[in-house]
Simulated assay, not measured.
Amino acid sequence: MSIFSSLEKDIKYFFIILGVSSFFQFMFSEAFIFPSALPIKIPAESILLRIGDISFYIFFISLIVISLILSSKIRALLPLSLILIISPFLAIFEVNYQIYYGIEIFIIVISFAVIIETILKSSLRSILLIPSAILVIIGLIASFLIDFLHTSLFISYLNIFIISSIFFLIYAILWGKIISKRSIIAYIVGIISMYPFIMFAHEISTNRYVEMLMEMILPSALGITIYNPTHILYLTYTLSIIALSIISIIIKGNGAAGIGYFLIITTVFFGTYGYLLLFYMMVPTIGYVIMNYNEMKEKRIIDYFSKVIQKS
């Protein structure tokens, strides 16, 4: 573990690798699967899919390294990191389903411990990130229920998704200096990043064919079940808020929070499909730890509670 602890001084480089690879594997591997199945012509489709596949392996390896490095701060993360390492071999050797169910339960219990430990070891400002923790917990429960009981949570994933995005936007604004040259640049670039989603929403609302396509593609690409097709516009506007938040906070200097939140929103409900189940049960939890990385450097919630208890 001392080897991985010594790598923490270079963790920002691993964050960059993880961020870039996660973006490309999502765009050209996860999300790309769904439009590529439709009868539409996609330029250089085979090349894009190959980029997605390569990015996925880089993403997987960098995620393991970062989770092992962060396990020196969040002790409960170590067993989750070890399961992440052995997860491909479980599929290769066709492990018995009963063992799989046991591993899934273990992942849920450890993930709960990781989330609680992360919250306690982060600053008071990280309270704004708790809705994202709830998002992760619901994703874990939904993944287990769909695989073990073959049922789903009949709740609005979209509503939870929206609440999480709003709180993360508030966090992105409050982190660091609210008003400074760098912050203003971050907000301007973030607002510009919203433009494609807003124009896309306009296209959906005015073109029935595009709307029908997006009702199939967008929810599937994110793993979100939308019970009301008209809510596709809400999802599109929420994605614009998320783009604003992630880009703004990265430019403001908290790349870990932006990358961690991107990992959560792009994988949190993918386990509900049963595809790479164990992997997509673990990634959002690790993403939540990454999201709080810079908050662990400041005064911690556990220290605050300790002083309150001592005074009482």
Results as ranks from 00 to 15, higher is better:
Lys181Asp: 15
Asn228Gly: 09
Ser193Asn: 05
Gly223Phe: 10
Ile247Tyr: 05
Ile251Ser: 04
Met212Asn: 07
Ile251His: 03
Ser205Met: 10
Lys181Ile: 15
Ile246Lys: 03
Val210Ser: 04
His231Asp: 15
Ile250Met: 08
Ile251Gly: 06
Asn228His: 06
Val210Gln: 03
Arg208Gly: 07
Glu203Trp: 09
Met216Asp: 12
Val189Glu: 00
Gly190Gln: 07
Ile249Leu: 08
Asn228Val: 15
Ile224Met: 07
Thr238Lys: 08
His202Ser: 12
Thr230Ser: 11
Pro196Asp: 11
Phe197Cys: 00
Met216Ser: 14
Arg208Pro: 14
Ile188Asn: 13
Ala221His: 01
Ile246Met: 10
Ile185Pro: 13
Ile242Tyr: 04
Tyr234Thr: 15
Met199Leu: 09
Ser248Ala: 13
Ile185Cys: 08
Lys252Val: 02
Ile192Gly: 03
Met214His: 12
Ser180Trp: 08
Pro219Phe: 01
Leu233Gln: 06
Thr238Ala: 11
Ile246Gly: 04
His202Thr: 10
Leu239Glu: 06
Ile242Asn: 03
Asn254Cys: 05
Arg182Gly: 13
Ser183Met: 03
Ala186Trp: 01
Phe200Lys: 00
Ala201Ser: 10
Ile249Val: 14
Ile242Thr: 06
Met199Val: 14
Met194Arg: 05
Lys181His: 10
Met216Pro: 12
Val189Thr: 01
Lys181Thr: 15
Ile249Gln: 04
Ala243Pro: 00
Ala243Thr: 03
Ile198Met: 08
Ile249Lys: 01
Arg182Met: 09
Met216Lys: 12
Ile192Arg: 01
